[in-house]
Design a protein around this nucleic acid. Structure first.
Length: 152
DNA sequence: GCCAACGTTGGC
DNA sequence: GCCAACGTTGGC
C-alpha cells in the first residue's frame, strides 16, 4: 500500500466537506505531473489531506482511495472552471480517483511544523515553490506523520 | 494584496 | 525548438 498527499483549498473543498460526503471524486486536477501520479494510485492506498492557500496551511486528515480510473466529469462541463475544450468523451484527457473519508487529525500538522520536521527531499510539500497538487509520500515518512498526528 | 515559482502558450 | 509573455498556485 502506498501513501500520497493531495491538496485542496478548504474554501473550495475541505476535510469537513469530505467527512460529510464520505466519498468524493477528486476533480479539477489539470497538471500533467499530478495526473501522472494519480494514474499510479491504486485502490486501498491512503492519502493525506492537505489544506492549501489558506490562513494555516497543513495536513489535516487522512483518506483512502476507493476507486481509480475515474473520468473527471468537469472536463466536459463548459460551465466549469475545469472545462477542457481539447478533451473529448471518446478520448478523455483527465482521469482521477474517488476518495473516502478516514479521519480528521485532532491536531493538524501545520506547514511550519512540517518544515521543522522534514527535509524537502523527504516530503515534497515543504519544497520551496512546490505547486504539485498530488504527490507520493514514502512509507517511512507517512508512518512518522501518522505517529505525529496521533501523539496528542 | 503581493510576489516568487513555475507551467503553458504562442510567435518566430 | 527557443524563449518571452502570461496565467496560476500558494505562502506570507
Amino acid at each position: 500500500m502506498a501513501y500520497w498527499l493531495m491538496k485542496s483549498e478548504p474554501d473550495v473543498y475541505s476535510i469537513d466537506d469530505l467527512e460529510r460526503d464520505r466519498t468524493d471524486i477528486w476533480d479539477g486536477v489539470r497538471n500533467y505531473q499530478a495526473r501522472n501520479f494519480l494514474t499510479s494510485v491504486t485502490v486501498g492506498d491512503k492519502a493525506f489531506f492537505y489544506h492549501s492557500n489558506t490562513k494555516s496551511p497543513g495536513i489535516v486528515g487522512l483518506m483512502e482511495i476507493v476507486e481509480i480510473n475515474v473520468v473527471d466529469p468537469t472536463q466536459f462541463d463548459s460551465a466549469s472552471k475545469y472545462y477542457d475544450p481539447k478533451s473529448s468523451r471518446e478520448e478523455p484527457r483527465w482521469y482521477t480517483v474517488t476518495v473516502g473519508y478516514l479521519e480528521t487529525f485532532e491536531v493538524s500538522m501545520s506547514l511550519e511544523k512540517l518544515r521543522e520536521t522534514f527535509s524537502p527531499d523527504d516530503l515534497w510539500v515543504v519544497r520551496r515553490g512546490n505547486r504539485l497538487s498530488v504527490m507520493p509520500v514514502a512509507n517511512a515518512i507517512a508512518e512518522k506523520l501518522l505517529y505525529m498526528a496521533r501523539a496528542v
